[in-house]
Amino acid sequence: MSARDEVLGRIRTALGEQRPQVAVPPVPGPRSLAPAELLHLLAERVEDYRATVLRCTPDEVPATVVRGLDLALGAGWEPADVVVAPGVPAAWRPSGAPEDDGRPAVQLAAFAATLTGVATAVAETGTLVLDGSPLSGRRALSLLPDVLVCVVEAAQVVPDVPDALGRLDPLAPLTMVSGPSATSDIELQRVEGVHGPRTLVVVLAG
């Protein structure tokens, strides 16, 4: 008998003829928040992870992206140091910053910073979700450079995790990002910055 048939057979033996009937109770939805409160909550929760949040109007996104890069890289950074996800609108991009050209993933480590959009953002937990689309970029893009700048638009913000899952494609390679990379492995104290980007800047437009 194959291992597959044997394991499945064991499960059937273990459960027997009479399988338990289980009703799953409903879970209350998230608290209802006005759009302005939702953005405020997102900003507060992202900052709790020691990420930087820069709020602006949709028109101010390009200038705010530059300000974010100034803060993260220090003035005098070169546009060539910043790699941009291919679906990021032209208006958001620092002029001269190269687009991810599909080079072998490990070569992305040579860039100092990455600029992407997001698929959705969760206010309650301060989470950004990248979905591998051209706007979010492939997974390695938001992983290897040490600074990650993400632009979030107001309409992308949802109250809680279940709302976000409802908007996402389960087949896409998703990365949920809550603050910069961190560890609590030494005496259970949170330290920001291990293998992923050590600096996270969120440009919140709207």
Partner: peptide, 30 residues
């Protein structure tokens, strides 16, 4: 349900820094 229950119970965070999901193989990514 589980992504709300796990991080708060585990590291005491609203959400852990990174959650990755994938389905099979994605051409050109990973």
């Amino acid at each position: 349900v589980f992504l709300q229950l796990l991080p708060r119970s585990s590291t005491g965070e609203r959400m852990n820094p990174y959650t990755s999901t994938w389905a099979g193989v994605t051409p050109g990514d990973g």
